[in-house]
Design a binder for these strands. Structure first.
Lengths: 186, 186
DNA sequence: GCCAAATAGTCAGCATACTGACGATTATTC
DNA sequence: GAATAATCGTCAGTATGCTGACTATTTGGC
């Protein structure tokens, strides 16, 4: 048939985009009582997990660029789920903290988030789920640096000498990554 | 450690979002000479594959809602890669055709698209790639209806009786799907 | 201590993606 | 055949996600 699109619709990239749409829709559906999105959840979770974190560190924790994080935390702040204060030590930074309402939301939304994750993988047999998750993690970790906003977990450091956090030792965060970066067409 | 985000970063939804970011970035990088995106490629491919297709059918072919398709074909038209004329039979529709430039772009970009698909799966062993793709297709197909813009391939019909396309026989396209639909929070 | 380089956050601009509403047109029902 | 339904494309509104440029601040070299 002339209009067989299977060459297109079977491409990894196409299927991954579809699965992301589906996972996003499932989240919104499960969490619709909370008026909350997957990204907002990720940001709030990471902030609550590391009180006082600044926006750039949050980027590395949830794998978003600084512009996007700025919008997301702005929305969280508007909903009064977090506070955003200028950093005490470094006045360029914003220190992020979950409010009581934010912590409450995290607790209440948890079952919906868990249900979403189950629903996404529901069509697979239990053994397949493990294999799929293993390969998914592998793909993401190995391709990490290809993304403009790579995940950069804080490495486990000796608790911190003299109370001051050691500088991150891995690749530079922005300027030097520009060569690798891909830009969206106009 | 207090700030271990692995519960978050190991969630299927989070990893799928990351992989989609990565696949998108890889595409832009491979195709940067063409100033083109994965979605624009999918739309142009499907239009070229079924000349005269209307926008709603294109939605079903590439799994995007009507609003988004409107923007995408608008950009393709602005780039003079397709034409958009009012439908002859049904004046509500727009009939889409790839231009010579559009067909040329499709041909020239093909190696970059193929390279992108290889790069996405590159970290997996050959046997894993097959398994991953099989499960990916399974997840997308089984969860298809959870997405607001489910893929609806034109079913293979007896070539068409009396030259007129039979109505699609599956679920209604918009109105009745609203119950299932999930809406983005404000 | 001063100045250049680096970094944090913001902004405008663009593309993807969805909802709900709308006008125009077509199909259906009576 | 006229009233009603449904459908097509579009619009405004919102959220995610990126680039490149900008300001404010901090850091590092001298």
């Amino acid at each position: 048939m002339a209009d067989d699109n299977s060459r297109l619709t079977d491409m990894p990239g196409h299927l991954i985009r579809r699965l992301q749409q589906i996972a996003f829709a499932l989240f919104l559906n499960e969490a619709k009582a909370f008026d909350f999105t997957p990204v907002q959840y990720a940001a709030l979770y990471a902030i609550n997990n590391d009180p006082g974190i600044d926006q750039t560190a949050l980027c590395n924790a949830v794998a978003l660029d600084r512009s996007t994080i700025g919008d997301v935390v702005g929305r969280l702040e508007k909903k009064r789920l977090i506070t955003r204060r200028s950093g005490a030590a470094d006045r360029r930074t914003k220190s992020l903290h979950a409010t009581a309402a934010g912590r409450r939301l995290l607790a209440h939304i948890d079952p919906a988030v868990a249900a979403t994750q189950r629903l996404i993988l529901a069509p697979l047999k239990p053994g397949e789920r493990t294999a799929f998750m293993r390969m998914l993690k592998h793909l993401v970790h190995l391709n990490n640096e290809h993304s403009r906003a790579p995940l950069r977990p804080k490495e486990s450091l000796p608790p911190s000498r003299s109370g001051r956090r050691a500088a991150r030792s891995d690749a530079p965060q922005t300027r030097d990554r520009r060569e690798l970066a891909v830009r969206a067409p106009r």
